[in-house]
Design a protein around this nucleic acid. Structure first.
Length: 839
RNA sequence: GCCCUCGUGGUGAAAUUGGUAGACACAAAGGACUUAAAAUCCUUGCCCUUUUGGGAGUGCCAGUUCGAGUCUGGCCGAGGGCACCA
């Protein structure tokens, strides 16, 4: 038995794949894209999974005749380069380029069908100069603004983070507790598109529900109204926002944020200062927020109730009211809002019920918690008897007609702060003039290039520290000016790379014809961790670009989205509590493991997603060298559905390589077989069965059930292997096997191609014709039930009618022993599926 | 606290969407071949029965149905998202 030489075969085919072109000029376009990697040094198993799934889809579509765009690039700006550079005294650019070289070679070792002629790298000036131009376009279209705001300051990375980059009060990368700091920042006005970003989710049936829901919650639309209360004895009003104007007659207090305008007069008040301190002490940790007590401070200022004469409400300063949402003020209706309820209980404020549930329609019973359900209005003057929806409409009309408020929709979504005080990013093309104005640089002066002679060891912003870089001249006036020394958030870089891929050599950011031809991406594949950040920003960019250029057709970048699961591995800890790499550990059995060197016991921990910090990583290159790229690909596609997490298992890859060896053996056996003629009726059955496998595999790939496709290949192999010894002529055998091997090309491109060459296949890259008619002449395994219990399974021809089926099934001894001598009261017959005798 | 998703053998999982539960694979045990090992192949997998066979069974409890892993209601458990958003 000849051992398959994976290394030799793969090397040979990778030369041919080096810059794969999957173009069928006459075919329908198909843009297949996987999220591009950050060049951190080496690829990891997550990349292997992501890009293998993408490669299956790209090759599959190509073989089916589509004109496929399958590019790859590098998300190459970002902090790690800067840190690594600082540690090893290297230039970030060099460090990044070295990593790209290594990772590109590794990706090529996987046999991916990537058109490397399209490669882009975001840290390349040829890329970011276009981004600068787009930034200026956005600026001129009113999509960029500068605001002084409290920002999330990451004290470790010494930079600003977007809200989306703060997870449980900590930096998404550094895990440092985020601080609040006031800074002047550049913002992309993503909130201008809140409504579109929300509504257009409905235009994306090809996205996972889960991701759409996460984005919906993130945008957080709430529909309500703004309402003004007159402050008693003063000629001033206070504006609040509410989604429950219908409960206005249940209002018993007004609550404002500590940063509210009305608090200014208390800035020197001892009680207020004390209160404010108390509020700020409640930290940003998850725990603190969950248990945060509602506290307030009575201002002794009152407002007039707009609809109840002579009724006044007290104004409280409350810790649970946020300044940056709505107007930083609310009215409290304790009976119908849990927070207001808690607050009212604590400060002995009245709890007036204005919505009754149906059970105790008009009773004014004591409430144990706020009632937030539906019901009819009570205690509400002209609203009484209306349901909530009608009451809302009525009261809003009244508010509008009295000119004390208006309909209003608020969003949780905030504008996207893009300024970063870092070196290794795209310079923001703005300059500060002597007169204090801030203007974009003239487009003719682009690109604003990063300086290479930069000191990264001192603290603070490296571009600002540079002796001369920031000094420039305003082109129009010839006067000296200072460059913006902040760089753009790297999420900006990745918000349009998919458009650049359509025309990567274009002198302008994009070529309109190419963009309109290829966009949107037909299949986007990546991790669920980008459900909000990257995917929301990219959607915004597409819309913003369209606003700047009416010729752009697409308003959504990604037609179909697939989020693949993570690659997991068991974790190991030494007795001292130190993490161990899998290859430092020898497994004795399921639960027991020892340290290979020290022979001491090792604690086996749960399987978790591979990460360097837990050392539960497996190096893809090592695996490829040991088992071959096809085996690694085959394993990572088998067993688990692509959207779920997968457990890495050494025995699993080994099993994969054994199976591929069997495919190789089968190829050799079939070649050596001399038998020319076989039994015609057996051959007919054989052909049908092969066509059925093709049909099923084709369908499972289309539906992304790649693990099921793999299972079907195993079955198909078993069937073929048995067929060798049956009376099947060699021509038919080769024909059948060829079809199956072609279907395998997307999964194991090297081996499948090699075997097809050996079988002298001429049309390797053409997908076998999928015969839907095989389903028509299928034999049916008919289930025969008695009282709903399956008693026998009988093979029958398709489309038999009831009386025929009854005739056949009654003959079965397994069935007849249950129905003999019994009266059949009913027969349930489902064509081609089941017959059920009821006795 | 609110919202979402998911619970199927020792393990990863299939199941034509209401019609044969456990395909396919990993691990385990037993066996075949071999002087032996590796490789390869076969068998088994809960309960009762020597076998033929029969029974239970998809987190738990109920319901709809001739028939439920799939539908409905309630409970339990796991994972994820949001964080006082008025």
């Amino acid at each position: 038995m000849e051992r398959v030489n994976f290394q030799a075969i793969e090397k040979k085919w990778q030369k041919k794949f080096e810059s794969s072109k999957l173009y069928n000029k006459k075919g329908e376009k198909f843009y297949c894209l996987e999220m591009f990697p950050y060049p951190s040094g080496k690829i990891h198993m997550g990349h292997v999974r992501n890009y293998t799934i993408g490669d299956v889809i790209a090759r599959f579509k190509y073989m089916k005749g589509f004109n496929v765009l399958h590019p790859m690039g590098w998300d190459s700006f970002g902090l790690p380069a800067e840190n690594a550079a600082r540690l090893n005294n290297l230039n970030p650019k060099k460090w990044t380029e070295q990593n790209i070289d290594i990772m590109k070679k590794q990706l090529q070792m996987l046999g991916l069908s990537i058109d490397w002629d399209l490669e882009v790298s975001t840290c390349d000036v040829e890329y970011y100069k276009h981004q600068q131009e787009m930034f200026i376009d956005f600026y001129n279209s009113g999509l960029v603004s500068r605001k002084e705001t409290y920002v999330n300051w990451d004290p470790i990375e010494k930079t600003v983070l977007a809200n989306e980059q703060v997870i449980n009060g900590r930096g998404w990368r550094s895990n440092a507790v985020v601080e609040r700091k006031k800074l002047s920042q550049w913002f992309l006005n993503i909130t201008k598109y809140s409504t579109e970003l929300l509504d257009d989710l409905e235009k994306l049936p090809g996205w996972p529900q889960k991701v759409k829901l996460m984005q919906k919650n993130w945008i957080g639309e709430s529909i309500g109204c703004e309402l003004e209360f007159k402050i008693k004895d003063e000629n001033k009003n206070i504006k609040i926002f509410t989604t429950r104007p219908d409960t206005i007659f249940g209002a018993s207090f007004i609550a404002v944020s500590v940063d509210h305008e009305i608090c200014k007069k208390f800035l020197n008040d001892k009680n207020f200062i004390k209160f404010k301190q108390k509020c700020s002490k409640i930290g940003t940790t998850e725990e603190a927020l969950a248990n945060a007590e509602k506290i307030g401070l009575n201002t002794n200022i009152f407002v007039e109730h707009p609809f109840i004469k002579n009724k006044t409400l007290p104004i409280y300063v409350a810790n649970f009211v946020l300044m940056d949402y709505g107007n930083g003020a609310i009215f409290g209706c304790p009976a119908h809002d849990q927070r207001d309820f808690d607050f009212a209980k604590k400060y002995n404020l009245p709890i007036i019920r204005v919505v009754s549930d149906d059970k105790n329609s008009t009773k004014n019973g004591e409430l144990k918690e706020a009632y937030t359900g539906n019901g009819k209005m009570i205690n509400s003057d002209f609203l009484n008897g209306l349901d909530i929806v009608k009451a809302k409409n009525t009261i809003i009309e009244k508010i509008v007609s009295q000119k004390i408020g208006k309909k209003q929709t608020l969003f949780r979504l905030k504008d996207w702060g893009v300024s970063r005080q870092r070196y290794w990013g795209c310079p923001i093309p703005m300059i500060y003039l002597e007169d204090g104005s801030i203007v974009p640089v003239d487009k003719s002066e682009l690109p604003i290039m990063l300086p290479e002679d930069v000191d990264l060891k001192s603290s603070g912003n490296p571009l600002n520290n540079h002796p001369s870089w920031k000094n420039t001249v305003h082109k129009k006036t010839g006067k000296p000016a200072i460059r913006e020394t902040d760089t753009l958030d790297t999420f900006v870089d990745s918000s349009w790379y998919f458009i650049r891929f359509c025309s990567p050599k274009s002198k302008t950011p994009y070529n309109i014809n190419d963009t309109n031809y290829w966009m949107p991406v037909d299949q986007y594949i990546g991790g669920i961790e980008h459900a909000i950040l990257h995917l929301l920003y990219s959607r915004f960019f597409m819309k913003a670009m369209k606003q700047c250029d009416k010729n752009i057709i697409s308003s959504e970048p990604f037609k179909n989205l697939f989020t693949q699961g993570m690659v997991c591995h068991e974790t190991y800890k030494d007795l001292d509590g130190n993490w161990l790499y899998p290859d430092e550990v020898e497994k004795i059995n399921e639960k027991k493991a020892i340290n290979k060197l020290k022979k001491t016991d090792v604690k086996v921990g749960p399987s978790e997603s591979m990460s360097k910090s837990k050392k539960n990583t497996i190096d893809p290159e090592t695996m490829i060298k040991q088992y071959g790229a096809d085996s690694v690909r085959w394993f990572i596609l088998s067993d688990s559905p692509p959207e779920k997490d997968i457990q890495w298992s050494d025995t699993g890859v080994y099993a994969a390589s054994k199976f591929l060896q069997k495919i190789w053996n089968l190829t050799n056996i079939i070649i050596s077989k001399k038998k020319l003629n076989g039994d015609i009726s057996k051959e007919k059955i054989f052909k049908n069965k092969i066509d059925l496998y093709c049909f099923k595999i084709d369908k499972t790939i289309e539906n992304f059930h790649l693990n099921v496709a793999v299972a079907q290949f195993y079955e198909a192999y078993r069937f073929l292997n048995e067929a060798i010894n049956n009376d099947i002529g060699n021509k038919i055998l080769v024909e059948g096997f060829t079809k199956i091997l072609k279907l395998m090309i997307p999964f194991t491109p090297h081996l499948a191609n090699e075997c097809l060459v050996k079988l002298e296949c001429k049309d390797v890259n053409i997908w076998p014709k999928i015969e839907t008619k095989v389903l028509e002449n299928l034999k049916i395994n008919f289930a025969v039930q008695v009282n709903g219990k399956t008693r026998d399974i009988i093979e029958m021809n398709k489309d038999m009618n009831e009386s025929e089926v009854v005739k056949i099934t009654k003959k079965s001894s397994k069935v007849s022993k249950y129905i003999l001598d019994k009266k059949i009261s009913k027969i349930i017959f489902i064509k081609n599926k089941i017959i059920n005798y009821i006795i």
